[in-house]
Nucleic acid binder design. Structure first.
Lengths: 210, 210
DNA sequence: CGTCAGTTTGAGCGAGCTCAACGTGAGTGG
DNA sequence: CCACTCACGTTGAGCTCGCTCAAACTGACG
């Protein structure tokens, strides 16, 4: 892993609104989020965007460019953030020498595929309430994975971003957050959220959590 | 590529309803579809399934098991089918020796990720009519890729399967196929379909085709 | 302290779902 | 070869969840 370290470039910090790359950009590197958060999105012909993913510390962003050497999404910082840039061709070369690295990278891509398929199920069969709940539980465990609180965290994205990601409107997202708060299972004030009853939230999603 | 050939196992043919693997099965191999077609699906706790993908000749199935060495989906043959089985650990070993193979496999996984993200956009922002249309155009170009007709082909899956995949009910799928037929852009009889006006279909989906 | 993006709340509407009934064709057994 | 069956498909009628449109509120930042 020390060898991986040699090819990683620690880039300058990014600030809210900075693009990491844009749709159709030439693909050169993947990025590991060190701090802060990003969203990826696509623009349709009428100029409106759809959010395709959120990326938190410890997660990998940019895999959408591997297939055809050009990014399918744009990626933008949601707040102050820093990243590690990993040039893809160097990663490939090094993977030929380090079986563990190759194996890990296959796993990372496999995990992305599995995650996307779960989102597919979520979008094709869950109600609005289940989508929001599942989304919040997902954020919770992703924050927990990097040692942050699983019950109290900040939403780095807007209600609109959440809506685009989950296939809902801003209004629906807002209304449901209020409704869940009235149920007492969570408390939300602006971007700050506290999950007060994880078990109840899991029950809303159904036995099969995301 | 001749070396890849040495690790591929050409399995016995499968018939409609045969499982290639089941959810939670230990992951051992990925499969290339040689003929016929498959669907992958997950069962939720209440026993109902959601289709997560369709696999046609020339496509790779089983990538959902790479991440945690266990399949996230079940895969079942929709008709008589044959496959090539590629043991994954052998593929990994060989990839260490053949840079081209490693590169190609990264590309294949990257393509799967890009495809899944397009489905995400489809499910989160398209109307029922756009979903069906986009789905049919997708099938069309996938059949064309292996030398079959892009305008006339058989639907190997049921209306129910299509509905589960697209997040619609059987009734909606059926109604929309009838409606599209009345518009004159396609003709459908049972499983046989003819796309009569590809341009019109693309227009329904919008400028950004899937 | 004004501005503007983001958020909330309300009222009405409609796309797609639910429930129900009927049609159809491929496979099976007599 | 026909009758039966059962999964699959179609069509209709009514309802509901989430969308649309509209208006007001909040807070961050210049």
């Amino acid at each position: 892993m020390a060898q991986l370290d040699t090819i990683v470039e620690r880039n300058r910090p990014l600030t809210k609104g900075d693009h990491l790359y844009r749709q159709h950009d030439n693909f050169k590197s993947i990025f590991a989020v060190r701090s802060g958060s990003f969203k990826s999105y696509v623009l349709n012909s009428s100029g409106e965007g759809r959010v395709t993913g959120f990326y938190l510390p410890g997660e990998i962003i940019g895999l959408d460019g591997i297939a055809d050497h050009s990014h399918a999404n744009s990626a933008i910082a949601l707040e102050h953030a820093s990243i590690c840039e990993i040039p893809f061709n160097q990663l490939e070369s090094l993977s030929l020498q380090l079986p563990v690295l190759q194996h890990n990278f296959f796993s990372i891509m496999g995990a992305e595929i599995t995650k996307d398929q779960k989102v597919h199920t979520l979008l094709s069969s869950y109600s609005a309430e289940q989508r929001i709940t599942s989304f919040l539980l997902g954020l919770s465990s992703r924050y927990a994975r990097v040692g942050l609180s699983a019950t109290r965290f900040n939403l780095p994205m807007t209600r609109g971003d959440i809506g685009e990601y989950l296939g809902l409107t801003v209004e629906t997202v807002s209304r449901l957050l209020t409704a869940l708060q009235k149920k007492g299972v969570l408390a939300v004030a602006n971007r700050e959220i506290e999950l007060k009853d994880i078990e109840a939230l899991k029950q809303i999603v159904g036995a099969d959590a995301l």
